[in-house]
């Protein structure tokens, strides 16, 4: 993971939260953000998007964030994409479980849009 953090794939089912997070990451963080509205959409598009980092919401209908990451890791073509979670549940056991799945870090919801980009950069820097 030597390349700079530039392109982020945001997987979030709530359109309003996604809009706020996208604006925060783009306008304040200066990242390129591609939004996927579901876990299935993320699995379909990740190969095409080739993100530097995936930000995954955990609680999503049909395919939750945990299952999305499991499937990403199970496929050799997508196993290498780094991912971090954004979730309302940041209990130590839940965070540990998400990290065991292969997440770089777990960010808490609700997030502060003014500091979200810094938190993402910090997680990225710690992982690299």
């Amino acid at each position: 993971m030597t390349r700079p953090l530039k392109r982020i794939m945001l997987v979030e089912d709530d359109a309003d939260v996604a809009a706020v997070a996208t604006m925060a990451l783009q306008d304040i963080g200066g990242f390129d953000v591609v939004h996927c509205a579901s876990g299935m959409a993320a699995l379909e598009q990740v190969g095409h998007i080739q993100p530097d980092l995936i930000i995954l919401d955990f609680s999503m209908p049909e395919l939750d964030g945990g299952e999305v990451l499991r499937r990403l890791r199970a496929d050799p073509r997508t196993a290498h994409f780094p991912a971090i979670y954004m979730t309302a549940s940041v209990m130590p056991s839940h965070v540990a479980m998400l990290k065991e799945l292969g997440a770089l870090d777990v960010l808490k919801k609700p997030f502060d849009p003014m500091t979200l980009s810094d938190e993402v950069r910090k997680a990225w820097a710690n992982a690299t």
Binding site: D16, V17, A19, V20, M114
Partner: peptide, 21 residues
Amino acid sequence: SHELRTPLTSIRGALSLLDHA
């Protein structure tokens, strides 16, 4: 409480961004 968090995330975020802009 969890269901309240999601819209709150949007409201707080939107207001912060609006304030910033």
